[in-house]
Design a protein around this nucleic acid. Structure first.
Length: 383
RNA sequence: GUGGGUAUGGCGCAGUCGGUUAGCGCGCCAGAUUGUGGAUCUGGAGAUCCUCGGUUCGAGUCCGAGUACCCCCC
């Protein structure tokens, strides 16, 4: 089973180590999003290792729809398929209840979807989500939840959160049963519960207390960064984390910008994931220590400099020029996407390394102050 | 040098009976994007309507001449 060791703390911030059957996760960590068991942009598992990725994040709904979790299972599971032996976290499909809102109906038993691929009817409830994730064989399974819209009325959020908690209990029981079955790929599959409550602090706190008693392997805060302001998000995190178990890792789902992450760590978050580095990379928005560089901009047409001087990512280290990368993107060459995504994921992974190092040295407060200033005073053209 | 056709932003086109500030697609320029649809959305720049002349209160539109390109014929 998993063990979460708290190595050091500074204020609310944690420097931890999470040991799983697929290896150790040094926290705080950023999980690289590979929804369909692949990083969009064409990065292999070897590429991920080369940019210091610790955890891959895949998606239950998407893999269930295509190629099907039974297919993944027959191919040996989610680790074997892409040749990734390190930890994998699978999201439960709960977010698709939010992002595919036009294609689903929520009932007490679960959610009825119309597939976004071909429209066929699908049913995913807590038990189905656990069965799919068990078939996939991920290291960490997420509970099946509903991520309510940030603008939802209090009355609806109360109803939704209560249902999410009932679903969590069903998830826990089903996961226990599946882990005991003969032929299960990963009999040590872990389960993280999810806190919801939109921007209603009291609802979040109340639910945090309830789920803390379930003794899960980790706890996530979901339903943030979906329309509310950054200040509201930070305030929700601040008020909620004290009521989640301190001896278990905390995961802020789907967040966020480099600044969001630093502020999350400051408030006690251990795990993060976000589509930003990969999606923005595909769109040519590149992260640097001096702000975001829009590589498609005309001013880079004949720029011979790398994306960022001194960056340790494979693309910058090999010295590919901004002008060349701009050309690749504008010419729709796959290599351009690959370069940009690799740079951005390296930037995020390295940011987490710097955060861990600062925590190890006991100077995270200072690091936070300097880094936020650096990111805000962005001027990459000065480099 | 015969006959037919075309000419409107970088490219491809629309433009009614002559009537506001000449539109559209692509491209270009810039911006969004938070548990991923390589998607999508939002702004912006860019025009001597081939040239000259005429008719008219008013011409991208009608008339004349010229120029360029395309097709047919030889």
């Amino acid at each position: 089973m998993a063990e979460y060791e708290l190595i050091k703390t500074e204020g609310q911030a944690n420097r931890g180590r999470f040991t799983t059957v697929h290896g150790v996760i040094e926290t705080p960590v950023f999980m690289n999003v590979a929804t369909c068991a692949a990083i969009k942009g064409g990065l292999s598992a070897r590429d991920l290792e080369s940019i210091k990725t610790q955890v891959m994040l895949c998606n239950t709904y998407h893999l269930h729809v295509r190629p099907g979790d039974e297919v993944v299972n027959k191919l040996g599971g989610l680790h074997k398929m892409p040749h990734w032996s390190h930890p994998i976290l699978t999201d439960s499909g709960g977010f698709q209840v939010f992002s595919l809102a036009d294609l689903r109906k929520i009932k007490e038993e679960g959610v009825y979807f119309n597939s976004h691929i071909d429209g066929r009817k699908l049913f995913i409830g807590p038990e189905q989500s656990m069965q799919i994730q068990s078939n996939l064989g991920s290291t960490i399974a997420m509970a099946f939840d509903e991520c309510p819209n940030a603008l939802s009325e209090r009355e609806y959020v109360e109803k939704s959160v209560a249902r999410t908690t009932r679903w969590l209990i069903r998830c826990k029981e089903e996961m226990k049963r599946l882990n005991g079955l003969e032929g299960t790929i990963n009999k040590d599959q872990l389960l993280f519960g999810i806190n919801q409550g939109a921007i209603f602090h009291d609802i979040r706190i109340e639910q945090a207390k309830e789920i803390a008693d379930l003794d899960l392997d980790g706890y996530a805060i979901g339903g943030l960064a979906v329309g509310e302001s950054a200040e509201e998000m930070y305030s929700v995190i601040e008020d909620t984390t004290p009521f989640l178990p301190q001896n278990k890792p905390t995961y802020l789902m789907g967040v966020g910008t480099p600044e969001n992450i630093i502020e999350g760590v400051y408030r006690g978050i251990d795990f993060f994931d976000c589509v930003y580095p990969s999606r923005n990379g595909r769109h040519g928005n590149l992260y640097t220590n001096h702000g975001t560089l829009h590589i498609r901009n005309a001013k880079y047409e004949t720029d011979t400099r790398p994306i960022e001087e001194g960056c340790g990512c494979p693309v910058c280290r090999e010295g590919y020029s901004r002008g060349y990368i701009r050309h690749l993107l504008k010419a729709d060459e796959a290599l351009g996407l690959r370069f940009c995504v690799m740079h951005n994921l390296y930037f995020y992974n390295d940011l987490m390394r710097q955060i861990r190092e600062a925590l190890d040295r006991g100077c995270f407060a200072e690091f936070r102050k300097n880094k936020l200033k650096e990111l805000r005073d962005a001027d990459y053209d000065a480099t």
